[in-house]
Amino acid sequence: MSYFSDIYKGIKTLLTGMSVTGKYFLTSRKGAITQQYPDNRATLKMFDRFRGEVIMPHDEENRHRCTGCQKCEIACPNGTIEIIWDRGIDEETGKKKKKIDKFVYHLSMCTMCGLCIDVCPTDAIEWGQNFENSVYDRTALTRVLNKPGSKLMPGVED
């Protein structure tokens, strides 16, 4: 008799499984979990802490907060950040002072670990939201984060 009860139980469990998928089939109109990605660019908003790429914010007078202390360069495990610095004359005091010439960021080597941002004493770099980084030539992924002619924001070093 267990032969027939096996058949009965088997069919019952199969139908239970079908009821689950059937329910989702019927409610499929509102239940889609996928996103229509390139179409929803306008509405797609990443979380504010999203780690897309490292950026260096500049204010409206083209000034950044990086003092060129190179802590980020040391903290980076992959050699992603390369700071080319220079000694310039400070206009106010007239003394020689370290300042960055180029803040080179190799996005192709970055693992988004966040150690550079964590270690930065002046909050000069932070996370950007851009994640569409596909390019035809990988040299395009090497970026200079400070804008040309940018200067250090006053008061950062105090």
Binding site: F47, C113, G114
Partner: peptide
Amino acid sequence: EETCGARLTMNYNVPGGLMFDIH
């Protein structure tokens, strides 16, 4: 992602605690 910015490779812990507070 909301708390630490990454979905898979989180790197949220640092020796001594967390990299930043929870969201």
